[in-house]
Design a protein around this nucleic acid. Structure first.
Length: 815
RNA sequence: GCCGAAGUGGUGGAAUUGGCAGACGCGCUGGACUCAAAAUCCAGUGUAGGCGACUACGUGCGGGUUCGAGUCCCGCCUUCGGCACCA
């Protein structure tokens, strides 16, 4: 049902746009710059899917509007090219990741270009290019030099079937994403980034940025700040002591035992001979259990006694020290004081192992004495603190402990340091050399990049593929010149994507990752658009990188993305997430072949609430084709009636048309600015309806008609760029529609001199009257009370009061 | 279990933040054009009752505040996200 020859006009205008460099970013005009960015994509072998179009197509519409509004729009594009899929594909097919990735990038570039978007391709960034990952490695070294990258032995996610380490995000409900096998822990020496150093600042700046509240909340929870105290307990008959973190120092008199995580290094030191065997067995058991088992909260708690006793610093009481896997090694100090009277988990554990339960907090209301009381209240049986409220006691007890150097206020975060090592091939090599004499030595800057060798076996057997390539692995220590080994691991791909937005404006810089002065002008990103699934990963890492680079002196702003929008998800027609296995995928190509890319884009804009998404629907796209068809006919008709131009007769119809026209300008501008494209298109449709209506007028004012058609085309241009450019030309205007000024609405046209006011009686609409605008309260009241229908309705009733909302309604309250 | 978001016609979705609920579409009904169909155009379309002007009801459920509630408050239900023994 193609109405205009979209294929030839798409080609025609894309060619012309490229020839005339119409979207070129003007580097000399940073005053007006607007950095508009979509999350870059992974170069998969498949064609662009609906999600790409929804994200890129509509953000492009927004960028086009901004260009027309006079901004110097910077709209780069690139590829997040490292990652596991290419490597898995290689294991399956034998096709090298580098070959498949570059081939995919080539086709994807072609497809993205055929969208007809405003991308500034000359600033392209591809993360697997050595001239990019050279600087990823450079940043790693800077972080290392500044103490923000460190190495430690830690338990990591391990899939025994794939024989490889998995990233946290690849563990789905405790199972391996690829083979569905349960994930276990394995101790490995790994590289970490000290993101926890920035936990507080990452929290503090959240209120400052224009992000969806939902996303801020997720980051807030992920960072998980909690306030409490760190309290030191000493081990009885020993010089050893250990600290616990608690948010409830007011329950200190209720402590009846202590628990260490089985992995805690103190365990071996304090366990007495008699209990060694049992403790060892428990540790072994804890290590072997799968993630699914460990994560289960319904599972009964287990633990064993170590034979050691700890001394409560406030009353000198001796309490037994246990180990149990309900205490996490990675949070706080890996030890807790157990207060079964006031904590559900401790209560469950104490009940099972017959440990004493003491209650030291009383609530106001009557509480069931059999269960733990976890609220705040008033202290009892707590020596001099008895009778104090929880809040007072927390302050006083910590103060007292502080004097004895046995405790202090402390803030803990749930956020963990970011594990960046990966035992994979297709990523940026970690630029570190391990020398037996000199230890960990960073690769000198002049030797960067550490290039990824092409010739590598990537069979998944648990060993890093790079470790099997001797030519890569063995090198010379930059410090002592002796034989040394390279770090065989690669960096998590999230490292590469944590700074790509800094590289775009300066992507050809060979001397540095980016020029400080230049990116200070170009950043932060003004509008960032991408999926909500990155809330606690990429979006957090990128913020951390920005802050770390700032503190190391490489840039001067605090936040990378000032304003963030998440697009929704377009589902299959059946309401499920599109997937090949469900057979419910929608191919943009089919629709673009039938209707053209403009209509496809317009439908995405009109058919969904942008941040919500929803199921695909065929009928909707036909409706949009109809709409575009109508616009085309309006233009055609106008052109065919050209000779009639010049009549100039003011009529009320003309006033009406003008009113709709300026309502549309206002609505389209404001709604599109907020990414509310559906209502933005609705205003355009209203304008088309008004134009059709005006067309029926006998003596048309062709000047007004032309101006209105002109405005309609301008308002439509960001959403249907090829079509409107063509119509613009046919109207006889000069190239290009995208070099025109965005229309502005005239406030005066929107002011009506006569207004329809609603008259209510007791809140129910009873009549509508035409009243002059800006009627005074008294006059409005008078008009309503003189209204015939109203007089009938309120007859015989007592008038209580009259409420007047200017230019809107009059509510008469009667009894 | 905890945190968050959302529930509006047959349907996708609107509602200047407390002021005419259902904009704009889809679908449906009727009409015009046509030998007929498609396309196009016009009119109608929340539900129930009435020939009708109209009346009653209506934004997940139950209460409340208010002259007035889709919007605010309290208590539930359902769905979808995020976290999950975080001491």
């Amino acid at each position: 049902m193609a109405i205009y020859d979209y294929r030839s006009i798409e080609n025609k205008w894309q060619k012309k746009w490229e020839e005339t460099q119409i979207y070129k970013f003007k580097e000399e005009d940073t005053e007006n710059k607007l950095y508009c960015l979509e999350m870059f994509s992974y170069p998969s072998g498949a064609n662009l899917h609906v999600g790409h179009w929804y994200n890129y197509g509509l953000t492009d519409s927004w960028a086009r509007m901004k260009k027309m509004q006079g901004y110097n729009v910077f709209h780069p594009q690139g590829f997040d090219a490292f990652g596991l899929p290419a490597e898995n594909y290689a294991i399956k097919t034998g096709i090298h990741p580098m070959d498949s990735t570059y081939k995919n990038i080539e086709t994807m570039e072609k497809q993205l270009k055929s969208m007809g978007a405003t991308f500034n391709w000359e600033y392209e960034v591809v993360t697997c290019n050595p001239d990019y990952y050279k600087w990823t490695q450079w940043i790693f070294i800077k972080l290392f030099e500044n103490g923000l990258a460190y190495r430690k032995n830690a338990p990591v996610n391990w899939c025994s079937s794939c024989k490889t380490v998995l990233a946290n995000e690849q563990v789905i409900d405790g199972s391996c994403e690829r083979c569905k096998n349960p994930v276990t822990k394995r101790d490995l020496t790994q590289w970490f980034f000290r993101i926890t150093e920035y936990a507080q600042e990452l929290l503090d700046f959240l209120p400052e940025i224009d992000w969806p509240e939902k996303t801020k909340k997720i980051q807030n929870n992920w960072i998980g700040r909690s306030e409490g105290a760190e309290i030191e307990f000493s081990i009885d008959e020993s010089h050893l002591s250990f600290k616990v973190f608690t948010t409830r120092p007011d329950t200190l008199y209720g402590v009846t035992y202590m628990v260490l995580a089985p992995e805690n290094e103190l365990v071996d030191k304090i366990t007495s001979e008699a209990y060694k065997e049992e403790v060892e067995a428990y540790k072994e058991m804890a290590k072997k259990q799968s993630e699914i088992e460990r994560m289960s909260t319904v599972r009964e708690k287990t633990g064993v006694f170590t034979g050691a006793y700890a001394i409560n610093p406030v009353n000198g009481e001796k309490v037994p020290v246990w180990i149990a896997d309900y205490v996490l090694a990675g949070y706080g100090t890996g030890c807790v004081m157990a207060v079964p009277g006031h904590d559900e988990r401790d209560y469950e554990f104490a009940s099972k192992y017959n440990l004493p339960i003491k209650r030291v907090i009383k609530g106001e209301a009557l509480q069931d004495d059999a269960l733990p009381f976890t609220e705040y209240g008033v202290l009892v049986e707590s020596m001099e603190f008895s009778g104090k409220t929880s809040a007072e006691a927390i302050r006083l007890i910590v103060e007292k402990l502080n004097q004895q150097k046995k405790g202090e206020l402390k803030v803990n975060y749930r956020l963990r340091d970011w594990l960046v090592s990966r035992q994979r091939y297709w990523g940026a090599p970690i630029p570190i050399i391990h020398c037996e004499k000199c230890g960990v030595v960073p690769v000198p800057e002049k030797d960067l990049p550490v290039e990824l060798p092409y010739d590598v076996e990537f069979t998944p057997d648990g060993e890093s593929p790079l470790a099997k390539n001797e030519a890569f692995l063995y090198t010379v220590c930059p410090k002592c010149g002796g034989r040394a080994k390279r770090d065989p691991d690669t960096l998590d791909t999230f490292v590469c994507s944590s700074w790509y937005f800094l590289r775009y404006p300066d992507n050809k810089n060979e001397k540095e990752a980016f020029n400080r002065e230049w990116i200070n002008k170009m950043l932060p990103v003004d509008k960032y658009v991408g999926g909500a699934e990155h809330a606690a990963m990429h979006l957090l890492y990128a913020r951390f990188f920005t802050k770390a680079l700032r503190d190391m002196g490489y840039l001067d702003f605090d936040e990378p993305f000032l304003s963030l929008v998440h697009q929704g998800t377009i589902l299959g027609p059946d309401g499920n997430r599109m997937s090949k296995s469900k057979g419910n995928t929608i191919s943009p190509d089919d629709y673009i072949n039938e209707y053209g890319s403009d209509i496809f884009r317009l439908y995405l804009a009109f058919g969904f609430a942008y941040t919500e998404g929803g199921p695909w629907n065929d009928d909707g796209i036909k409706a949009i084709a109809k709409f575009v068809n109508r616009v085309e006919r309006i233009v055609e008709k106008y052109i065919s009636e050209k000779e009639k131009k010049g009549k100039n007769k003011i009529e009320s119809e003309e006033k009406e048309l003008n009113f709709v026209r300026h309502t549309a300008i206002k609505g389209v501008t404001e709604d599109a600015d907020k990414f509310q494209f559906n209502t933005s298109i609705a205003r355009q449709m209203e304008l088309v309806n008004a134009l059709n209506k005006y067309d029926a007028v006998e003596e048309k004012n062709y000047r007004i008609l032309e101006d209105t058609i002109k405005d309609l085309l301008l308002l439509m241009a960001p959403f249907a760029p090829h079509f409107t450019e063509e119509m613009w030309e046919q109207m006889g205007y000069e190239y290009s529609i995208f070099n025109q000024k965005w229309p502005e609405f005239d406030k005066n046209v929107l002011v009506k001199d006569s207004i329809e006011m609603v008259i209510q009686v007791n809140g129910k609409v009873r009549d509508k009257i035409n009243a002059p605008a800006d009627l005074s309260q008294n006059d409005a009241e008078k008009m309503a009370l003189e209204n015939e229908r109203i007089i009938k309705l309120i007859q015989g009733k007592k008038l209580v009061k009259v409420i007047v909302v200017p230019n809107k309604l009059i509510n008469i309250v009667v009894k």
